[in-house]
Amino acid sequence: MSMQKRWWRRAHLEESLFGVLMRLSAVVLVLALAGILGSVLVRGLPAMSWDMITKAPEGGFYLGGGGGLLNAILGSLYLAGGGTVLAFLVSLPIALGLNVYAPSSRWATFTRLTLDVLWGVPSLVYGAFGFLIMISMGMRASLGAGILVVSLLQIPIMVRGMDEVMRLIPSGQKEAAFGLGATKLEMARAVVLRQSLPGIFTAVLLAFGRGIGDAASVLFTAGFTDRIPTSLAGPAASLPLAVFFQLSSPFPEVRARGYAAALILTVLILIVSGLSRALARRLSRNVVN
């Protein structure tokens, strides 16, 4: 009897101890994450102005002079946008190849492992690789080189995202298409693409978000400039680097603009994320369950 009692007491103690630990962890996590958004908002908002998002830096910008961050905003959009288009053109065939032409083969398993490795490769390493390719071809840091490296970085993210939804398609649907005499290509278009469309859009926007927020890869390859990028051969600024460079300034006015740049970057990401959610919901109407 007393042994049973002791057992119960221990079980209760353990239960309440871990209950407290779990709740504490959840609260700390939520607070830390809210703190991030809060601190960027609190420090970024006072430095925000219309000029920040409509003007490129003017003379003496890095000493506290006039102008804004349009160079970095457009640069980031070009880098991430161009990279996303290139990455999409490569990623969709890879995902279809994995799911339509080589499903459940050893080759597909191996390719998925390779993609996992590429997903984990630090963006700095992509940057260093891009830099080596760039100098071996005699190119200089440019928007074009930046777009190429960003697209390489995005490919594993995009393929994994597409692959995940394509693998969930019930095999019965594919067999139904084959039963009607469809070739694999026709089946891919009629079943796989249509059923995974919301997932494909989510994957594309996720990759766009990673592209716009990444700094280490473009640090080597896109360079930085105060001018708004006009050609693929010229350098391009980006928001994460604008944050980084301005925060290392000794002038408080310039550092404040770094916070503003971080706020702009965060808002862009929030917009992309909201867009992806809305699109996914809209497109999932076409999906047959």
Binding site: L33, G35, I36, S39, V40, R43, L206, G209, R210, I212, G213, D214, A215, P240, V243, F244, L247, G258, Y259, A262, L265, T266, I269, L270, V272, S273, R277
Partner: peptide
Amino acid sequence: PAIDLLAGIPSVVYGVWGLLV
């Protein structure tokens, strides 16, 4: 959804928070 959203926040923003807090 909030957690997924935070997974997408660029690392440089986490750096800003680190510097400030």
